[in-house]
């Protein structure tokens, strides 16, 4: 039970937290791997990522957060230059 910030009562209010369902990266079967040399910074992966796991850096290049990426593959499918490839998890490199 969580106490309300303002009043001394037990409330049924939920508070925002990153990873409310834990590290959802463990759901992943295929891992998106970014080849930065092919990236043209179009930001399509960033806007199309359902999870928001693709971080947009200051210079509009992108970085994938593997802690929460669920591995759906939308980014790899929408990438116009095929800079993101899906690779099976747990295989030896």
């Amino acid at each position: 039970m969580k106490k309300s910030k303002k009043y001394d009562i037990i409330s049924s209010i939920s508070y925002p937290k990153e990873g409310a369902m834990g590290k959802t990266g463990s759901w992943r079967v295929f891992r998106p791997v970014l080849d930065e040399s092919k990236c043209v910074k179009c930001l399509r992966c960033w806007i199309y990522c359902p999870e928001g796991s693709i971080k947009r850096k200051k210079d509009d290049s992108v970085e994938i957060n593997y802690d929460y990426c669920k591995g759906c593959g939308v980014c790899a499918n929408q990438c116009p230059t095929k800079a993101i490839k899906m690779k099976r998890e747990g295989k030896k490199k």
């Binding site: 990153e18 990873g19 959802t24 806007i47 359902p50 669920k70 591995g71 939308v74």
Partner: peptide
């Protein structure tokens, strides 16, 4: 990003995709 990572949506969910925008 008001929609935080690590939510309970299915992989590839269109609802979170729309809600983010």
């Amino acid at each position: 990003e008001p929609v935080m990572q690590g939510n309970a949506a299915c992989p590839g969910c269109p609802a979170t995709l729309a809600l983010r925008t």
